[in-house]
Structure formats: structure tokens, C-alpha cells
Amino acid sequence: MLDKHKALARHALGLSDLNTRSYRNRFVTGPGSDDYEEWMHMVGEGMARRFKGSALFGGNEVFILTRKGAQAALNPGETLDAEDFHKEAA
């Protein structure tokens, strides 16, 4: 995973210097934003899934990390909240 993708993935998971366990798994963005093409690349690599936008998100699309993408974003000592991945096979 590229560094810029890892940074976006970590933001989607809510990971930071203070949070070592993920507490969400979503990133909202749309065409024309700086990070949209990066998320589309991660979708192509199997690191994320894309969902069509809705009025709730201003029409923007929602990106959800796959377990593969989320695990690639972890630093040593960090964990994922299993609840965000309970529908996905390990």
C-alpha cells in the first residue's frame, strides 16, 4: 500500500497516535476531490469497496476498506474493531 493510501485508510479507520484500535470504517468523497482518484485506485487493488452516494452524504460516494486494505494500514501494535468487518470473511 502506498503511503498516501495508507494515510487515507488510517483516517477512514480513525487510527492516530492516540487511537490504536479502529473505531470506524468509512470515507466520504466524490469526483473532483483530491482524494477521490486515490480511493478509486484502492478499489481497483481490492483494498476498498465503493458505494453510491446519497443525500445523507451530499451525493458523495462512501468508501469502505476491505479487511485486506484495513490490515495493510495498521502499524505495529494496532488492531481493528472486528465489528466493522463481521460480514466479511477473515
Rank of each mutant, 00 (worst) to 15 (best):
L18F: 07
S33E: 14
F27H: 15
V28I: 15
N60C: 11
G14M: 02
H5L: 15
D3M: 06
E78N: 10
K6I: 15
E37M: 11
P76H: 09
G46R: 10
K68F: 06
N19F: 10
F57Y: 15
L18H: 10
R49F: 00
L56E: 14
F51M: 06
F85Q: 00
R26S: 14
A48C: 08
Y23L: 01
Y23P: 00
E37V: 10
M42Q: 11
A70L: 04
D84K: 03
S33G: 03
A7Y: 05
D34K: 13
P31R: 13
L74C: 05
K52V: 03
A9F: 09
T29S: 15
S33D: 14
G14F: 06
S54N: 14
D35N: 13
F63D: 08
R26I: 04
A72D: 04
R24C: 03
F51K: 04
K4D: 13
A72C: 07
L74W: 05
G46Q: 08
G53V: 01
M40T: 09
L15H: 02
H5E: 15
H86Q: 15
N25C: 01
D84M: 05
T79R: 11
T79N: 13
G32M: 10
S33K: 15
F27L: 10
N25A: 06
E37I: 06
D34E: 14
T29P: 10
A9V: 02
Q71C: 09
R24P: 02
R50P: 02
K87S: 13
P76E: 13
G69F: 00
G46D: 07
G53C: 05
A55Q: 12
F27W: 13
K87N: 13
K6A: 11
A7F: 04
S54D: 15
L13S: 03
M1A: 14
A55F: 07
P31D: 11
Y23C: 02
T79Y: 05
R26D: 08
M42G: 02
G58A: 04
D17I: 04
E38P: 02
L74T: 07
E37T: 13
G59P: 12
T20W: 12
N19W: 07
R10P: 02
G53W: 02
P76Q: 11
N25D: 14
M42A: 09
L13T: 06
H41C: 05
A55M: 05
A55Y: 08
T66N: 08
A72G: 07
L18Y: 07
S33C: 10
A7N: 08
M40H: 06
T29G: 08
H86T: 12
L56H: 09
P76F: 07
D17M: 06
F51Y: 14
F57V: 13
W39G: 07
F63M: 09
S16Q: 01
G14K: 04
A89F: 08
A90M: 09
A72Q: 15
N25H: 09
N25Q: 08
W39T: 01
A82R: 11
D81S: 05
E45G: 04
R10M: 02
E38L: 13
D84H: 15
T20P: 02
N60H: 13
N75W: 13
L18W: 05
N60S: 14
H41W: 11
Q71N: 12
F51N: 06
L2W: 06
M42F: 07
L13W: 04
T29K: 04
V28L: 07
G30I: 07
N75Q: 14
G77I: 08
M1Q: 05
G32R: 10
L74A: 07
S54H: 09
L8A: 13
A55I: 06
H11F: 00
A89G: 12
T20Y: 06
